[in-house]
Design a protein around this nucleic acid. Sequence first.
RNA 1: GGCGAAGUGGCGGAAUGGUAGACGCAUCAGACUCAAAAUCUGACGUAGGCAACUACAUGAGGGUUCGAGUCCCUCCUUCGCUACCA
Length: 796
Amino acid sequence: MDFKKIEQKWQERWEKERVFEAVDFADKPKFFGLIEFPYPSGVGIHVGHLKAFLSMEAICRMKRLMGFNVLFPIGWDAFGLPTENYAISHNIPPRVATDTNIANIKRQIKSFGFSFDWSREIDTTDENYYKWTQYIFSQLYKKGLAYRSKALVNYCPHCDCILSNEESQGGICDRCSSSVEQREKEVWFLKIRDYAERLLNGLDSLDFPERVKEETRHWIGKSEGAEIDFEVRAGEEKDSLTVYTTRCDTIFGATFMVIAPEHPLVDKYKEYISNIDEVEEYKAQAKKKSEFDRVQLNKEKTGVRLVGLNAINPLTKEELPIFIADYVMMGYGTGAIMAVPAHDERDYDFAKKYNLNIIQVIQGEEGGDLPYTDIDSGVMVNSSFLNGLKVKEAIAKMKEYLSEHGIGHAKVNFQMKDWAFNRQRYWGEPFPIVYCDKCGTVLVEDLPVVLPEMKEFKTNSKGQSPLAEVDSFVHTTCPHCGGPARRETDTMPQWAGSSWYFLRYMDPHNKDIFASMDKMKYWGPVDWYNGGMEHVTRHLIYSRFWNMVLFDLGLVPFEEPYRKRSTVGLVLGEDGNKMSKSLGNTVDPMAVADQYGVDVVRMYELFMADYESPAPWSSENIVGCKRFLDRVERMADFIVDKPISDEHVSLFNDAITKVTQDIQNMKFNTAISALMTTLNVIYQDKYISREEFRDFLTLLYPFAPHFSEEMNERLSLGDMLCKSSWPTLRVDNSEKKVNLPVQVNGKMRGLVIIKENATQEEAMSALLGDEKIKSFITGDVKKVIFVPNKIINIIV
RNA sequence: GGCGAAGUGGCGGAAUGGUAGACGCAUCAGACUCAAAAUCUGACGUAGGCAACUACAUGAGGGUUCGAGUCCCUCCUUCGCUACCA
C-alpha cells in the first residue's frame, strides 16, 4: 500500500468533510479532550509530543464514533525564552522565528493525521489572545491578588531573569540548567498562596493519578504548627522575635534561638552586637553560597552567635542565646526558630558543634536516643504542666496555653510561595501597568498593550527587559490623570498564556470576552487532560489557580478546570537513557514516518509499552506494527460470503470488549495486541465475513486511521469510518466452554474443558475422567476449593 | 534525608489473589524459491529426558493463603519528584 498517497488522500477527505470540528451546543453528550499545547521550538516535533497526543487522539476518535460531540483542540504556547534566545543568536525577530516555527511544527503535526479541530487553533503570542491574558492579569490585580514588592528572588545569571520557585527547583534554572542565585529585585507576585488550601483540598474530588496528587500536595506543603513570640533583649531595649514551630510541645526544651542570615533583627540591633564584624562576614558568605550549596545534605551546620542579643523563653523565662545560621531560611515560616536540640536533628547537630545546652523534654518509649523526634510515642517530662502527656496531647494543650496567655497562636504554613510573575525579557505578554508620578501604579484598561517590534533583544546591563530601551513604548500617558507615565517594561512569564488556554478553546473567536459563559457552560470543564509529569508542580497548579480566581469573580462557571488527568510516560532513547542531543540518541519521527508511514509510527508509540511508563524506543520492534498492518491488508484474501460462525461471534465480541475497555483505560498496548491476536485467529481459520472485517477496521481506526479508511473503501465495506459508529456486541448463542485449571494441593496438574458456569460436581466428574489428573489424587480428598470458571483445587 | 513508582525470558513487555511469560522483536527449523528477500507454518524461560513428563523459576529473605509476580514484613537495586519543611 502506498502510504504516502493514502495519508494525503484521507487527510484531505477528513478536512473536506469537517468531521473533526466541534459543534457548539450540539444535542449530543460532549467530550472535551485536552492535550498540553506544544511549544513551537525550532527543533520541531519529537516522538514525545506524538505519544502525548496519540492517547487523546485514539480516545477522541473512538468517542466520536460512540456519538459524542468531541472537542479536541490544538494551539501554540509560543511566548518564552528559547525562541527569544534563538532570535538573538540568529538575529531574527522573535515574531518571525515564532511564525516560522509554528508553520513547521504545524505541517509536521498535520502530516500525522491527528483529528484536531483546526478551526479553533490558538496562539498565545497573537494580540487577540494575549489581550485576554492581560485582561485576566488586571482582574487579579483589581482583586488584590497581584502585588509588587522588593524581594529576594531566584535569579538566573545566564538568562538575566527572575525565576519563580517552580522554575528553579533544586536551585537549577528550568531553561538553561545554570545555578540560580538569590538577588533582591522589584518583583510582581501573584498571591497563589491565598489559594493554597483550596488547591490542596480540591484535589480530593478530582480524578487525577495518585502520584500527581501526592506531588502536588508535597509541593503545596501544608504544615500545621504555631507562632510563638519570644522577647528579645538588646542592652536596655526590648523587642520581640516570632518563631514558627510544629513542635510547640517542646518549648521547655528550647535552649537557643536561630534566625536566618537575612533576618532584619541583625540590622536593627547592629550596635548592640559586639561581634558584628564576624556576623557580617558570615552573612556575606551565606549570600555567596548558591542554593545548591546551602541545600547539600549532611553538610556541617555553621552559624555565629549574636553576642549582646538574647531571647527570653516565654515559658521558663530563661535567657537564650541567638545565632544566625544558614540552615534557617528567611523564606519559610518567620525566618526564625526556637532550637530544641533534644528533639530536632538539625538543632542537635548545631548544639553538639557549638557545645550548647541540651534539655530532654520527651521520654521515648524504648531507650529514646537523642535527638528523639518521634511524635507518635513518648511522654512529656521536664515540662511543667505538660508532664505526663503524650506528644500530640501536649501540642494541643500548648496551643491553647499560647493563645490564652497572648504569647502565640496556632498557625498553618505552606511551603508553596507566591508566584514571581515578571521576567526581564522581551518575548512575553507586556503588563497592562503604567507608573505615574501623580497616581502611582495604574492599570491600563485599554487592551491589548501591544508588544512593540524591536531590532535588538539583549537584556541591558541594568538587568532590565529589552523593552526599557524602547522609548515609544516606555513613555506614555497615565490613563487616570493624562499626565506623563512610564510603562512596566518587564513581561509575563511563559506560564501566563498556558494558565487559561483551555478556556479559549471553548470560544476561540470571541471578541468581547475571553470566552462566553454559555459556551463554557456547555463545554467545560475539560473532561480529560493528558500531559507530562513535569507539569504537575508548575502549569497544573498555576492554571487551577487562575481558573479558581476567575470562578470567584463569576467569570467562569466551574471551580476546577480539569475533571480527569492522565500522564504520559517518557519515550527514552534506544540506549535506555533520556533522549538528548548530547547523547545522540534522539529519534526523528518524521524520518521514521517516511520509512514506515504515519500509521505505523502512531501504532508503535502506543504499542511499545504501558502508556504511562517510560519506555525505550526500538527501531527493530517497530517493524512488528508494520507487519501487522501488512497482514491486515492480506486478510482480505480470507473474505468469504457466509454467516458468522458462533466461534467468530465470540472472537469479535471479545475483541470489541477488550479494545473498547483498553482505550478507555489507556491500555493501548493490550488493545493493539488484542487486535493482533484476533488477526492471528483469522489466519488460522482462513475466513472472515465482510461485516467482521469492517468491525475489525473500525477497532483499528483510532490507531491507524488512514490505513483503516483506505481498506474500508477498497473493500467497499461501507461509509467512511470517520462517519460511522463504534461496533456493538452480537448476540452470542453458542454454549461457552472454559478451560478450568486443576490444582492438586495447590500445584497445577492439568486442565479440563467444561461448559461455562459449570458446577463443582460437574467439574469434579470431568477431572476424574482425566487419567493424568486422577493419578495425582492419591489418598482421601480433604477439601475442594472451587471458583467457577477460574480454578478447582483439590486438597488430599 | 523525605515522598512516589518499579524490579518478570536474549529484548520491549502481558497477567480483577487462580494455567506466569499474552502480543511484538530477535533467534532457530520447515514450506515456497534456482537462490535470497518477502510471505506462510512451527519451535522458543532454565535443567534433566527421544518423548510423554518432572523439577526449578517473576531482585533477596521471611510471612499470610488451598493457591502469591500480585497481599504483609525486612533488605538490596533502579528511576522519578523533593530537598536543612523548623
